[in-house]
Every structure is written in structure tokens, then in C-alpha cells.
Amino acid sequence: MSKARDYDHGRTIVCDASALISLSENCLLWLLYDLDADFVIPKSVKEEIVDRPLASERFEFKAMRLAKAVDDGVLRVVEDRRAWSLARKLERSANRLLKKRRKPVTVMHVGEADALGLAMQMKAIYLLDERTTRLVVEDPDSLKRYIEARMHIDLDLDKRVAKDLREDMNGVRIIRSAELLAYAYEKGLLERLGFNGRVLHAGLFALKFAGCAITDDEIRDYLRIMQK
């Protein structure tokens, strides 16, 4: 297991389990091999996508593909005490952001906080397909409005907590598996799959169907800008 400080962080991408699941389900893990980046995961993500599923008949084969990426050094496991502490702090804050009649609404789990904490510690790009954590990081007010609309309730956004979170996160940049695919398409890496421009359309929808939180409108935006 590596420490966060051992590598050049300039090309580091910290990965959440959600994005790795989307890529793996679509046999796109090879992108991690071909792209010139240091893909990093915290130990908890490895436990989630490799160790636990390897012990399950249902998911053993899926886990094997991800285990191979770890064994090949393509997915580097990092354990960092400061990242861990940061993650705990983030989780506590995220779960005090929204309140219903002064009672906090718990929206986030420690699992998501671990990868986010590591990305912050390493000042790295954060690869995340999951929606709620992204909203916590980028736009807590949108999360508030989303939950209010879905649950037909009124929530209060704790502005002080939101400000503290924003300062702690210091501009964490989030990308999704969709962005990696679009970048790979831009660089011609998808040509091996054939089908020319159609491969981007098919690939983005495949990632969406695997759980990547990308809208149909965003996919259309990609097709418009990438296929000029």
C-alpha cells in the first residue's frame, strides 16, 4: 500500500467505487491502463469493489477484473491517516448541511467520504459517478432543492456548515466516467472499437445505464461538442 506523498500528484485521479463500477460493467477498465494518469483508491474502496465481492459468488467475477487492475498497479491503493481524518470531518459536515426542523438529515455515508478525503489530501481530481456526493461538493443548495422536491418537505441549509465545507474542499474538481470516455474519444483511443462517432453515443449511454449520474441533455451536449 502506498502513502499519499510518494507520487507526483500532478496526474493523480482519485477514484470512487461508483465510477469504477460503471467502467468495469462496460468493460472499459482498459481506459485506466491506456490513459497516462495515476489512478488512486483508498483502502475502503478496494474493500468495497474487490475484497468483499471476491467473497461472493454473485460478484466474484466482476471483482476479479478490478482486482487485476489493482494487482497490475493500474489502480493504486493509498492509505493516508490525514485523508482518513479529513474524510471523517467531511462526513460529519455533510450530514449537518441539511436540516428538517433543526434535525440533521443524514445524506452521505463514510464510504463516499473516504475517496473524497483522499482527493482533497492529494489535491487531485476526483472520479465520481455518484450524484449526492457531487451535489454536496459542488452545489449543496441544489441538493436541498432536489430532496425537497422528491420528499415534498422543507429543509434548511446550514449556511455556516456549507461555507466551512466549501473552504475545506478548496475547489475539488469532480469528473465522471463519462468524462474519461469523452476524453478517450477525443484522443482517438476508442477507434479500436470501430463504429466511428456512434461509439461515443453508445459508450456514454452505457455508462449512464451502469449508474453514472449523467443526464440525457449532458450526453447530447457531449455529442454536439465532440462531433463537430
Binding site: 496526474r11 493523480t12 481530481i125 432536489y146 422536491a149 463519462a178 449520474a213 461538442i225
Partner: peptide, 21 residues
Amino acid sequence: HDRPFTQTKSVKERLGYVREV
């Protein structure tokens, strides 16, 4: 994932993050 309030940044901006790295 297509419901309102879930889109936070443009795809151009996100793709820009990848290109930066």
C-alpha cells in the same frame, strides 16, 4: 439522474478538468 437539480457543471468544464491533468 435526469431529474431537476442534478446537473451542476457543464460537460465542457468537466472535460476541461481531464485535459488539465
